[in-house]
Design a protein around this nucleic acid. Structure first.
Length: 409
DNA sequence: TGAAAGTCAATATC
DNA sequence: GATATTGACTTTCA
């Protein structure tokens, strides 16, 4: 499938075309059309399951494509948004899959990743900002939860219907196969395309690759060849591994920066692998990534990380998880969240966030809402606030200097 | 053109 | 069953 152009101009052949179509096509009442877009299960050839890439229309802003909205969007607080989304989904027992496929046009894995490790707004490309704009709009939609609930009900209904019909057709091979996912090696006779088996790297291989990365994050083709032959892997696998690892390390560092800046952010709920306890002893927690601190260290932005790295365990951040309360209504976002519509009559994405325009494009744009106003844990919050202020000050100083080498950390 | 960004989808884990 | 992880791939960007 073709991918969305990141161009600011509307891309007619966008893969998320349904979104644009729907937005563009919503001449009248967007919300009404949105509800009407909740297709009955019978309309869905997949049996009622929505598909990634076909998010619901965006509420409001009719006539604007999602790309235009993204391009026009002020800086959003991706952490606050994902936090709120997670909260709303959890509170309402809504799954990532449904949310991703319905609202964002993304698969479950992508949603999980996005929610757990959002990148700061200024680090995102236009395309990367799109899901956050969608999330923000979704949060601002007073009926967002109901609509998703409706979808959930419809899916369940469709599922039951399929179950019933497959049960009644239980003697029919087709009926049984209809609900079967073909996995490699078990394709139906007609499906000849054998899927490539997924490569799963063993702990030793990963360890070796990590060591190699520590020595050389950008290995030469020769080194890659050597690694591949030593580990008995394809060179493409090694190349991919380095690409992925660099990319994920980078993202971890964004998160660590945010965490260092006062413990706000997704990692506060254990999101960052590099800060999570090691699950499998495979060592993504304290090993590989800590060395990344020595690998280019993202221009030395490891300020304030010593504590986290040193402790190398979950942080005492549970207080944060309740920051902002557990208001079930997404329409009532934290008023301090950049992009929230509090007191603005629900004017939506573009009526908000003058704050963001005044804020520098920096990951330090920590929402004031981060630290909760809950009277509990005051000491903790005070400490965090002090730490935060200190770090923000230093980051702002740093941001004013082009050359990272001049940064004073 | 190579690296980064973004995403999918298989698989692992909870 | 839901969520997290990760190898592979495509698209974007400098």
């Amino acid at each position: 499938t073709p991918k969305t152009s990141a161009s600011c101009s509307p891309a007619p052949e966008s893969p998320l075309s349904s979104a644009e179509e729907s937005v563009n096509g919503l001449a009248g009442d967007p919300l009404a059309s949105q509800s009407s877009s909740l297709k009955p299960p019978s309309d869905d050839p997949s049996g009622g399951e929505s598909q990634p890439g076909t998010p619901l229309p965006l509420p409001g802003h009719s006539g604007l494509s999602i790309q235009e909205m993204v391009a026009m969007s002020p800086e959003l607080d991706t952490y606050a948004i994902t936090k709120k989304v997670k909260e709303v989904l959890t509170d309402n027992n809504l799954g990532q899959r449904l949310f991703g496929e319905t609202i964002l046009g993304l698969t479950q894995g992508s949603v999980s990743d996005l929610l757990a490790r959002p990148k700061p707004w200024h680090k995102l490309s236009l395309k990367g900002r799109e899901p956050f704009v969608r999330m923000q709009l979704w949060l601002q939609d007073p009926h967002s939860v109901e609509k998703l609930m409706d979808m959930k009900r419809l899916e369940k209904k469709a599922y039951m219907k399929r179950r019933l019909s497959s049960l009644s057709d239980s003697h029919s091979v087709d009926g049984v196969l209809a609900g079967t996912d073909y996995v490699q090696g078990s394709q139906s006779p007609g499906q000849q395309q054998l899927k490539k088996p997924r490569v799963v790297l063993g702990p030793e291989e990963k360890e070796a690759l990590k060591k190699a990365y520590q020595q050389k994050p950008y290995p030469s083709p020769k080194t890659i060849e050597e690694l591949a032959s030593q580990l008995n892997l394809k060179t493409s696998t090694v190349i991919n591994w380095f690409h992925n690892y660099r990319s994920r390390i980078r993202r971890e560092l964004f998160i660590e920066e945010i965490q260092a800046a006062g413990g706000v952010g997704p990692g506060s709920e254990g999101g960052s692998p590099s800060l999570r306890g090691s699950k499998s002893g495979e060592g993504d927690s304290c090993d590989g990534t800590e060395s990344e601190g020595t690998v280019e260290t993202r221009q030395g932005l490891s300020i304030g990380l010593e504590d986290h790295r040193g402790a190398c365990k979950d942080h005492d951040m549970e207080a944060e998880s309740e920051a902002g309360g557990s208001n079930n209504s997404p329409a009532q976002l934290d008023c301090t969240m950049p992009g929230s519509s509090c007191g603005q009559g629900g004017l939506g994405l573009f009526s908000l966030t003058e704050a963001s325009s005044s804020s520098s494009a920096s990951s330090t744009n920590i929402p004031a809402s981060g630290p909760a106003r809950n009277p509990r844990d005051n000491n903790l919050r005070k400490k965090k606030a002090a730490n935060l202020n200190n770090i923000i000050h230093r980051l702002e100083k740093a941001a004013s200097k082009e050359d990272p080498s001049e940064w004073e950390f």
